[in-house]
C-alpha cells in the first residue's frame, strides 16, 4: 500500500483530503505544518508528500528544501498545493508539480497518481 503524507494547516482541508485518499486505498499520514511533517517522515517514510505552501512553523518551500536535502528521503514524490497562483510557483520551483486550490477530486487523484508514478521526485541537490 502506498503511503501519502498530507500537510496542511487548515484542519478541515487536511481531514477531507485524508479521507478521500484513504477511500482511494492509500495509507495516509497527516501533519499541520512542515515541522510536524518531518517528524512523521522520521517515523514512516512516505511515497508522496502532498503539501500546502503557506503554513505556520515551517512552510511548504522550507519543507521541500529539507526533504530534498536529506539523502534518506531521496525518491519521495512531492506534490505542492496552494491557493496562491501556482503558475508562479511552478517557475520558482521547477520539477515540483502543483495543484491549484480549490481543486476537484478527480484532478487531485490524477495528480497524486502521476506524482507517485514518477513526477516530482525529491532528489539531492
Amino acid at each position: 500500500m502506498e503511503t501519502i503524507l498530507v500537510v496542511d494547516d487548515e484542519q478541515g482541508i487536511l481531514e477531507a483530503l485524508a479521507d478521500l485518499l484513504r477511500e482511494e486505498g492509500y495509507r495516509v499520514l497527516t501533519a499541520s505544518h512542515g515541522r510536524e511533517a518531518l517528524e512523521r517522515m522520521a517515523e514512516l517514510r512516505p511515497d508522496l508528500v502532498l503539501t500546502d505552501w503557506m503554513m505556520p512553523v515551517l512552510d511548504g518551500p522550507a519543507l521541500i528544501e529539507r526533504i530534498r536535502g536529506e539523502a534518506a528521503w531521496a525518491g519521495v514524490a512531492l506534490l505542492g498545493m496552494s491557493a496562491v497562483d501556482v503558475g508562479a510557483l511552478r517557475v520558482q520551483y521547477p520539477g515540483i508539480p502543483f495543484l491549484q486550490k480549490p481543486f476537484d477530486i478527480p484532478a487531485l487523484m490524477r495528480q497524486v497518481r502521476k506524482a507517485l508514478d514518477g513526477g516530482g521526485r525529491a532528489s539531492l541537490g
Partner: peptide, 11 residues
C-alpha cells in the same frame, strides 16, 4: 502572495 500577504490557519 505569499510575500506581501501570507495566510495561515491557527485553528
Amino acid at each position: 502572495l505569499p510575500e506581501g500577504v501570507y495566510y495561515v490557519s491557527g485553528f
